[in-house]
Amino acid sequence: MSISSPGPDRVPSTVKVDKTTGQGKPPAGKSGANRPGGTRPAGKGGKGGKGRKPVTPVKVAGSRPWGPILVAGAVVLIAVGIIGWGVVAAMQSDKEKATPWEERANAISGIVNYRNDPDKTLTARDHKTGPLTYKLTPPVGGAHNARWQNCMGDVYNAPVANEHAVHSLEHGAVWVAYKPGLAADQITALESKVKGKPFTMMSPVEGLTENISLQAWGYQLKVATADDPRIDDFIRALSQNATIEPGIPCSGGLTQTGTTPLDG
């Protein structure tokens, strides 16, 4: 906001100072004592110098000391250059800080993003009753039941209905699905990533092609083991961030297991 103002502001104000060559000291000292911006102190200094003009002790009345003007001009240019460089460098470092979640998600190797898939049924959002069929196992979106599966870090030890789980994804949940019969230590490791963490849930799912499959709305990642670091990356990037209804909770959902959806 104020970033662009220092340059233009400083030039005229400092030019004023050099008109009163020899007595720029007070304004300069004053602005040095002031805080960040740099804009205001410089402006004040200019005005201050102008106001005190009559008291000028050095007799340069009516003369034009070109040498000092050139020196002062060069100094001003250098000062402006330093400020500009500082601001640009700072802005770049600020930009690097916050990486949008989409970028972080897409940087995870092996992740599949279905949000722009030509098949729009994969991420359709209609509410429908009764059992529904999904093209992906597990699904990453699509028409779903009006009621969602509770996704407050719930660990379900039996399969849940896709129709409810898809609705949870819409609320921003990451659904950790694993092959039934996965080794107990693998399940425990997965549980520790889910338990008590709102906007995550976990359940066994029949027919997985890999041991573990992670789902968020429109995204999927399949991994072989629970210690794969991409699991944390996926949860961190997509949990809650992937919601298409920002601000909605994961609480208030169904907590029963069983693959038949519950209507009403």
Partner: peptide, 30 residues
């Protein structure tokens, strides 16, 4: 007079550098 001008030039340069650094730091470490 020359000494004053040099002093003034140095001061302006310092103020400029200071302001530039301050502005930079204010954004770099918000």
């Amino acid at each position: 007079g020359l000494a004053l001008r040099v002093l003034l030039a140095v001061l302006i340069l310092l103020v400029g550098a200071g302001a530039g650094l301050a502005a930079g730091l204010a954004i770099a470490s918000p």
